[in-house]
């Protein structure tokens, strides 16, 4: 015999197709499901907008027609965002150097590069969905950003030694401040790469681009700051990600309010 969950699945499919026999039997014995099925099966009224309104809208649109170039496909948008991120990172590293990279062990370096690569790909994919309404989301942008911050914190805590010296937090603050300074122009350049899009939620897009700018900043900090200890990295470096996401969200949210 079927169960209430099977009715839910049947309703998810818009009650299309023949009802399974097991579900039919379930409806006989379950009054709650029977009532729900009956309420959901009520046909919709065939209401239509007034014809003059439709023709007025159509003629207005037709009068203002110009050819437009559609936004890039999600693959192209993904690759473009990754390429711009790579260029900005390379330019910053070229200007500031990578003097502190030698201080990292092979495992630390490999772990950091692997996580950075995954984070960059996840951010680029999320941005490519957000710039076109109606895109298919494979994960939630907000959850992804949370996981990103958590993953970097975890990596710093697991791969780097805990030797919180006196200067650790003071230098942490300095690194965080410098990180935010690098993150803002990086995020702006990334925004230029996606500005043709029409994001449904500017706050979320702002947070994602802010996170991407902060990721670039995090790479620059990691390769230029010689203080490779877990407490410093968690406070001074990973916090840049949080700050970038927060600032990006606020900027996007403010833009949305201004547009409204």
């Amino acid at each position: 015999m079927g169960n209430c969950r099977q009715l839910d699945e049947f309703l998810d499919r818009g009650s299309s197709g023949a009802m399974p026999e097991a579900l039919r039997l379930h409806l006989v014995v379950c009054p709650r499901c029977r009532k729900l099925h009956k309420a959901m099966a009520v046909p919709e009224a065939e209401v239509v907008p007034p014809a003059p309104l439709v023709s007025r809208v159509a003629s207005h649109l037709a009068a203002d027609l110009k050819p437009v170039t559609p936004v890039a496909s999600s693959t192209m948008a993904f690759l473009r965002f990754l390429a711009v991120s790579l260029l900005v990172t390379a330019a910053l590293l070229g200007a500031l150097g990578m003097s502190a990279m030698k201080g990292m062990s092979a495992l630390q370096l490999a772990g950091f590069l692997l996580l950075t690569g995954l984070a960059a790909a996840a951010l680029a994919a999320t941005v490519s969905w957000q710039i076109s309404p109606g895109s298919r989301y494979r994960w939630s942008p907000a959850a992804m950003l949370g996981v990103l911050v958590g993953a970097f914190l975890l990596e710093f805590m697991l791969l780097f030694p805990w030797q919180a010296g006196e200067g650790s937090l003071v230098f942490g603050w300095k690194c965080a401040r410098a990180g935010v300074v690098f993150a803002i122009p990086s995020a702006f350049l990334l925004w230029l790469a996606v500005r043709r899009g029409e994001p449904p939620a500017l706050g979320t897009l702002g947070a994602t681009i802010g996170g991407a700018g902060a990721l670039i900043s995090l790479i620059v900090l990691q390769f230029n700051c010689s203080m490779h200890e877990a407490a410093h990295l968690s406070v001074g470096h990973a916090s840049v990600l949080g700050a970038g996401i927060g600032l990006g969200f606020l900027t996007g949210w403010a833009c949305e309010k201004l547009q409204a």
Partner: peptide, 18 residues
């Protein structure tokens, strides 16, 4: 926003998002 419709994608989700 008509430029933001990606060719080859289904239309109605795009319309409903707007």
């Amino acid at each position: 926003a008509r430029h933001s419709f990606r060719r080859g994608e289904p239309l109605m989700p795009w319309v409903f998002a707007i």
